[in-house]
Design a protein around this nucleic acid. Structure first.
Lengths: 135, 135
DNA sequence: TTGACCTTACGAAAACTTTCGTATATACTT
DNA sequence: AAGTATATACGAAAGTTTTCGTAAGGTCAA
């Protein structure tokens, strides 16, 4: 048993976490339905017990916790979405952009179509950051 | 043989690609040394044949190609670093930020300490993007 | 009560990734 | 020529993740 504070979720685990973050504490059945709903018609559906097993494993790892009072267990994510994003972002930047968050941001902005509203948002954020040091 | 245009590299494969991108076409021995060099003293070194095997697999997947003219094969990445980053970034944003590159950028900027120079760079890039539509 | 339908638990197969031992061959040195 | 060092190839063990079959039991309605 590892005492890692931030066990890195696998891809499948992350998919489940997304659903828990979006919909709040949920039973296995619901998560499984959501999971299959977002799949292409071509790809195979995930079996119910597969999802169940995964969520049990996640609870063992400390990624989720569950309320077992009623027969139908209710699962919820332990770490917040933002917290987890922060952590995964760090790892991703290290692995893919050799640690340069800037390079990543530049690529994200430069490449795809970012709307004017979004650019304004970023400008506002930058102003806020720049303002911090002053006064 | 799959005909995937963008086979997603595994974590280990990505480490090897980093080295190939940074140093250009290289033999296995060199890649293996670089790999071990960037490890903590505590973690175990990767054996030579392990790296060799990995690079052979990568060639099979279409991630690398090799020149076998001399006895010592020279490997190189097929996709460029930028191209691969673009692709992985897309997948990462989908998996971790539910597709919102904006949310990711905001977190990357808002959280860690971004220097004034970097902020200036971003501002310049935004201006450039905004300028595109105008006359 | 019986049967249909649901739940969790869990072992283990299947699939994928990483590691390494060993065979075989080529080159270099003395 | 013989011995040492280094190369590729490759099977298979070891490790991890994902999938599912099946067992065991609870709930509910007719």
């Amino acid at each position: 048993m590892s005492t890692h504070k931030h066990p890195k979720p696998t891809d499948s685990e992350l998919e489940i976490l997304q659903i828990l973050w979006e919909h709040g504490p949920s039973p296995v059945r619901f998560v499984n339905e959501q999971l299959n709903q977002r799949k292409e018609a071509s790809e195979p559906k995930t079996g119910y017990t597969t999802t169940l097993k995964l969520m049990q494993i996640m609870t063992g790892k400390g990624l989720t916790q569950r309320n077992t009072e009623s027969r139908t267990h209710i699962y919820e994510a332990i770490a917040s979405e933002t917290e987890t994003q922060q952590h995964l972002l760090q790892q991703f930047v290290d692995a893919t952009f050799r640690g340069s968050a800037m390079k990543m941001v530049m690529q994200a902005l430069g490449n795809n179509s970012t709307s004017q509203e979004e650019l304004d948002e970023i400008k506002a954020l930058i102003s806020k950051i720049e303002g911090k040091d002053e006064a």
